[in-house]
Amino acid sequence: MDSLVVLVLCLSCLLLLSLWRQSSGRGKLPPGPTPLPVIGNILQIGIKDISKSLTNLSKVYGPVFTLYFGLKPIVVLHGYEAVKEALIDLGEEFSGRGIFPLAERANRGFGIVFSNGKKWKEIRRFSLMTLRNFGMGKRSIEDRVQEEARCLVEELRKTKASPCDPTFILGCAPCNVICSIIFHKRFDYKDQQFLNLMEKLNENIKILSSPWIQICNNFSPIIDYFPGTHNKLLKNVAFMKSYILEKVKEHQESMDMNNPQDFIDCFLMKMEKEKHNQPSEFTIESLENTAVDLFGAGTETTSTTLRYALLLLLKHPEVTAKVQEEIERVIGRNRSPCMQDRSHMPYTDAVVHEVQRYIDLLPTSLPHAVTCDIKFRNYLIPKGTTILISLTSVLHDNKEFPNPEMFDPHHFLDEGGNFKKSKYFMPFSAGKRICVGEALAGMELFLFLTSILQNFNLKSLVDPKNLDTTPVVNGFASVPPFYQLCFIPV
């Protein structure tokens, strides 16, 4: 009986604490739906499609509103004006990374994606500088992407125009580009180590996009005490870190300090320079996690976009025909596509942009946080508050993009057929937390897609009208449904 009384008292205290925290903070924060004790607004949000729920709530509470995930307040920004004001106009104040408990377990605050403060700034600055020195957006990395595009075309030829699921092959190409940047090595598509790495990356994007992960991140005790797919994700990350550590040891034994070959060499050189400046942010643990982040951000996002792009091109054969006509006119058949071609191919450029806009790969991006107490639109948001960005509300804005739910390359073309930029184009987020590999991803999408369409016609196994382009999961990332196609050599 005594234990029951204690339990009831504990629960009562928890409920009172929950109510007090919510009521004391709500006077400062933007308005929002009334949260339930302990669980907050979790029942009012469709976990399978958070973005749709945010759109519905914005119609009631406006472009800036507050939700509670458990006891934790989260300020939501919906629509271009609110997102721009926060991420661009007040970029420094909104540059923090929001709480992501599962990532905390995986990387302990290291790396480039989930770190904060001085650690994040130094690692991000170093990573950007190193990638630029190796030619991100310049010639040397373009050579690597072109080489991988040629290998991709050869792998597709091996399908002999038979029906195939493109998931694996389209994942190999961007993964190999990242391998060449980090390890100075590309792998054969049949290499077992490479296959294991690909498998872990593919599993992780599916797990991260599941409703279960949303629950884990908002009720963090689940991570330590409950079984579930989150444990598989943590094991996959541990596998990748151990693999990278092996490569780091190989580099330490063979590195030429006067001739760095890749990202690992550059990081080890930085560690050597910083060894007298303790404590340094440049450690082996930081290198492991930064490399894992580059793999995660640079492989599955690009391969998922490529997979979605081919599905949309199957669905819209008239678009595919126009792209192939432009390829034939500008590039021809006797040389590989290059980035200089893009400025002469406005329709193809528009298609690449429209694919990214339409699929809305990361509907709410990753959570941000404010780095200080900030007054925002007459609300006071306390330091450390998590900020949720609705990228969907920007990419699918119906004023900027008429009929935003329709796939239409003319969203990025003017009346004369010239490519038209849009400030609403934010597939990689915006501001200080914009994806480090934005330029690389854009290069890969253009070169891989043009190389495929230069060499193959795409054949659907069903009537294009019957192809479903609805994402199968739409949590962290929008993942396309399973499909097969035939690559018919031109």
Rank of each mutant, 00 (worst) to 15 (best):
I39V: 14
N455W: 04
R307V: 03
K52I: 09
Q278C: 12
H344N: 13
S3M: 13
L311V: 04
V237N: 08
H411G: 02
Q356M: 14
C10H: 05
Q278L: 12
L362K: 05
P31K: 08
H276M: 14
F219Q: 06
D341T: 02
Q324V: 06
E203M: 05
T320V: 07
G384I: 00
R124M: 05
S336I: 11
V319D: 07
P480V: 08
P63I: 03
L54M: 12
K423P: 10
L458G: 01
E285N: 07
S162E: 15
S286H: 15
P31M: 06
K383A: 13
M255R: 11
K420S: 07
V355I: 13
L461N: 12
T305M: 05
D349A: 14
A309E: 00
Y80G: 08
K241A: 04
S254C: 12
F487W: 00
E285D: 09
S162H: 11
F376D: 02
Q324D: 05
I123G: 15
Q278R: 11
A477R: 15
A238N: 13
I99L: 13
K158T: 05
V394S: 08
P404E: 08
Y80K: 13
V6T: 13
S127H: 05
K118N: 10
Q261V: 09
K270I: 06
L388C: 07
I207N: 04
I213H: 15
T302A: 09
T299A: 08
A291D: 01
Y358H: 07
T348K: 00
G137P: 09
G384P: 02
N258Y: 08
F407G: 00
P101S: 14
Q484S: 07
L201G: 04
M255G: 10
F168R: 09
I264M: 09
N398E: 15
V8I: 14
A477F: 08
H184L: 06
C266L: 12
P489N: 02
F487Q: 00
V490R: 15
G296T: 11
V370S: 13
P163A: 09
Q214Y: 13
P31N: 08
L311Q: 02
I213N: 15
G96C: 10
T299R: 07
I387C: 12
L440C: 00
T470N: 11
D408M: 03
R108G: 15
N378Y: 02
I74C: 08
K241Y: 04
V479Y: 11
M426R: 13
E328W: 13
I434A: 15
P337T: 07
D341Y: 08
D360L: 05
K421I: 10
W212M: 09
F456H: 01
L391D: 02
V490L: 13
K241S: 04
T371Y: 05
A350T: 01
L391G: 05
F65E: 02
T130L: 09
F412S: 01
S478V: 12
E253Y: 09
G79I: 00
S140D: 12
N133F: 05
T301N: 03
Q193W: 09
F94Y: 10
W120P: 08
R329L: 13
L380Y: 12
V292H: 02
K59H: 09
P31G: 08
A238D: 12
H276P: 12
F425Y: 11
R124C: 03
V319L: 03
R97T: 01
F282C: 07
D188Y: 03
D341V: 04
C216P: 09
Y483V: 02
V248E: 03
S460L: 03
S393T: 05
L314T: 07
N403M: 09
V472P: 07
V237L: 09
E85G: 07
C13I: 14
S254Y: 08
L311H: 01
L152Q: 01
Y347R: 02
T283M: 05
K421A: 15
G431D: 02
K206F: 03
D143M: 14
G62I: 01
W20R: 12
S451V: 07
M406G: 10
L131K: 03
I47V: 13
P101R: 10
D165S: 01
P402T: 13
V248L: 05
L90M: 14
P63E: 12
L7K: 14
F110I: 12
S51D: 10
L17D: 15
L4T: 15
T470S: 12
Q146M: 12
Q340F: 09
N56Y: 10
L71P: 15
E199P: 01
K235D: 09
Q356F: 08
V352F: 10
S242Q: 14
T290I: 13
V323E: 01
L17R: 11
I222S: 08
P37V: 05
S393Y: 00
V355Y: 00
D224G: 11
F446T: 02
